[in-house]
Design a protein around this nucleic acid. Structure first.
Length: 640
RNA sequence: GCUCUGGUAGCUCAGGGGUAGAGCGCUUCCUUGGUAAGGAAGAGGUCCCGGGUUCAAAUCCCGGCCAGAGCUCCA
């Protein structure tokens, strides 16, 4: 009777009958031959599994095809196995580590005597195509721990992983042709499913991410369901390389890093200086409008300050070593907060004074390990858009509303999309867990009141308080760590930051550490990549380049430059070389506006305006009108 | 910090045991230009540093420094 068949549910809510012991593949075939051909894996009760897995009665089954986003990790994981299959054939002695799918592809770690070369990668790709052509099925098998010890006797890395597994844990291996791997799966049905892939790079990687353990050789690659998707991805990678802020930084003469000055120390050239000045001026003006007060603090302080803050204890690895003078030891400041706390406690505060918002473009110094330094994005000296907001507990909610409102405004000006994450209490949190959790609820309520979508980073909060993090999404869809609004219940204790309440009693304030733009270095480095060096008019170091057709018209062109400057635009005259050369030069330097002045324009008092990237589509305008348009672009912070 | 790769003109790079190369940039001269490179001449080098091998090292070997890609770590 019912033993013969079972029912499973489908995503559309319907149910179908299928013989007991049916696999997901059988169910796909039962739905239709097209789906059976396209099926790659299945989601059974929210778990992604192989097509060949039998389905239990009453399960909810969704068949995955190349059109499902959650099939991509399965494909990439299988691609990693195909890679390992090829590597094992060409380098029989290679030990195998882990080979997962990752955000944009996959990797596999190998233990080899000789590191891989680019030629090796090509050879592996060729071999991988043979493995794909052979269309080996991925066969899953449950094994016992004892069996595993035999199978992986020659694979110490796999053995190590195996031994960590609990005795009652389900242990599975996957076999594709000649290759056997300890693996949880799932996989596409056969190696023939891995058609469009590319090996990208090799790198050293610590076994299990532990720098005290041996270094393996990692091969990165990516895989897609279609040639088109693969090509688009490779094109995005190429575009990201073209936008590299270090390359654009040199081409546009924005900044440099020089050996004699030291790695991690940015020299801002005049062009980069103008961009930074413009950002800083905009930021400071905005902050003053939003109830912040500007403070300044020195770059060096007595070590005592960082003893109070606790930095000496938990952060000294990242601090420059001390400077000594007659018994006093001084440190370059790694953060601005202690200084701001000292300003707060320089006098007694009333509940009527709160909230207080101290903002500083504060320059900090951190002794980052050399290997982590990267252009402007990771440096040893940086100027943070930092602020510390002192509030009463009952003001937390209102203040987070303001923070979220301000951040949305700022990021919109720079054309960033963003995502929001809320980090909750970790295991090692200090103080009363109830206070921490109440704060988390307050922050969550603010986000919900604003209709703001957010992720929850469970246990991702600092030990001293929860936070809201903002992730920037740039023009290329890449995500950057952005603004962060961190609650702090600890520092008020350490520094004795209190206020006198309406009850005439002392209460601790709550501190909010917040940054909107992060550091000037990282933010502007990021902006360079976001805009591919083509800054919108208001940010462009040079906004208009005026080009007389020949030097005969230089005087008339000079008058235009003066007019533009009088309207507040950054304009330059360029009357050297041929016109074609100068136009090319202005395009290459990504100047937003070119104004060409020849006989016709000089006599008519006009200018031929050419916009960056618009080619010959130029417009002849009255000079006043042009200057007005540029000024309006600047005033309105136009997006182009 | 670790692994790999690299370091030759201001920049991008070729070369490679026996006189140091190209393009761009720079300087000067000619050209006075109508929309993405007009022409010519010239200057410019500790071939990263130190040691070794060699009759001879920019080139091969060893060590160091610096940079890049990752790992780890983070604004």
């Amino acid at each position: 009777m019912a033993d013969e068949s079972i029912q499973v549910r489908l995503p559309d809510g319907s149910a179908i009958e299928t013989p007991r012991g049916s696999s997901a593949a059988d169910i796909a075939a039962g739905i239709g031959p097209g789906l059976a051909r396209a099926a790659l894996a299945a989601v059974v009760d929210d778990e992604v599994v192989d097509l060949a897995r039998p389905v239990s009665p009453g399960a909810e089954v969704r068949i995955l095809t190349s059109r499902d986003d959650d099939a991509l990790p399965v494909l990439r994981h299988s691609a990693a196995h195909v890679l390992a299959t090829a590597v094992r054939e060409l380098r029989p002695g290679a030990g195998i580590g882990f080979g997962p799918s990752i955000e944009d592809g996959f990797y596999y770690d190998f233990e080899v005597d000789e590191p891989f070369t680019p030629e090796d990668l090509e050879a592996f790709e060729v071999r991988m195509r043979e493995v794909v052509a052979a269309d080996f099925p991925f066969e899953r098998r449950r094994i016992s721990k004892e069996e595993g010890r035999e199978l992986f006797a020659d694979d110490p890395l796999k053995l190590e992983r195996l031994e960590e597994m609990a005795d009652d844990e389900v242990i599975t291996v996957y076999e594709d042709g000649p290759f056997l791997d300890l693996c949880r799966g799932p996989h596409v049905p056969s190696t023939g499913g891995v058609k469009h892939f590319k090996l990208l790079s090799t790198a050293g990687a610590y076994w299990r991410g532990d720098e005290n353990r041996q270094m393996l050789q990692r091969i990165y690659g990516t895989a897609f369901f279609s040639r088109k998707a693969l090509d688009e991805h490779l094109e995005r990678l190429a575009e990201a390389r073209r936008r590299d802020h270090r390359v654009l930084g040199r081409e546009l003469d924005l900044f440099s890093i020089q050996e004699e000055v030291g790695s991690g120390f940015i020299l801002w050239h005049p062009n980069g200086g103008l961009v930074r000045h413009t950002v800083e001026e905009f930021l400071k003006t905005t902050l003053l409008e939003h109830g912040y007060e500007l403070v300044y603090s020195p770059h060096v302080a007595r070590e005592e300050l960082y003893r109070i803050s606790g930095h000496l204890e938990v952060f000294s690895e990242d601090m420059f070593p001390p400077m000594a003078d007659e018994g006093n030891r001084f440190r370059m400041k790694p953060m601005n907060c202690p200084h701001h706390f000292m300003i707060y406690r320089s006098r007694s505060r009333s509940y009527r004074d709160l909230p207080l918002r101290y903002a500083e473009l504060g320059t900090c110094y951190r002794y980052e390990r050399t290997g982590t330094l990267h252009g402007m994005l990771r440096v040893r000296s940086f100027t943070q858009d930092d602020a510390h907001i002192f509030v009463r507990e009952d003001q937390i909610s209102d203040e987070y509303h303001r923070l979220l409102g301000l951040v949305a405004y700022l990021l919109d000006v720079f054309g960033y999309q963003f995502e929001v994450a809320l980090s909750t209490r970790p295991e090692k949190a200090i103080g009363d867990p109830a206070v921490y959790d109440a704060a988390v609820r307050t922050l969550a309520a603010v986000l919900e009141e604003r209709g703001q979508d957010y992720e929850v980073d469970e246990g991702g909060g600092a030990f001293y308080g929860p936070k809201v993090d903002i992730l920037l999404v740039d023009a290329l869809g890449r995500k950057w760590q952005g603004p962060t609004f961190q609650l702090d219940f600890l520092m008020p204790e350490r520094f004795g930051l209190d206020y006198v309440g309406s009850d005439n009693q002392r209460h601790n304030v709550v501190v909010i550490h917040r940054t909107m733009l992060g550091s000037m270095e990282r933010f502007i480095g990021g902006l360079v990549e976001h805009y591919a060096g083509a800054f919108p008019v208001w940010l462009a170091p040079e906004q208009v380049r005026v080009l007389p057709v020949s030097e005969v018209w230089s005087e008339s062109a000079r008058e235009l430059v003066d007019l533009l400057r009088a309207k507040g635009a950054r304009a330059q005259l360029d009357d050297q070389d041929t016109l074609g050369y100068r136009i090319r030069e202005a395009e290459v330097k990504k100047v937003p506006y070119m104004g060409v002045v020849g006989k016709r324009e000089a006599e008519a008092g006009t200018v031929a305006v050419r916009r960056r990237g618009a080619g010959r589509k130029q417009v002849v305008m009255e000079r006043e009108a042009f200057a007005g348009q540029v000024a309006e672009d600047i005033r309105s912070r136009a997006r182009w």
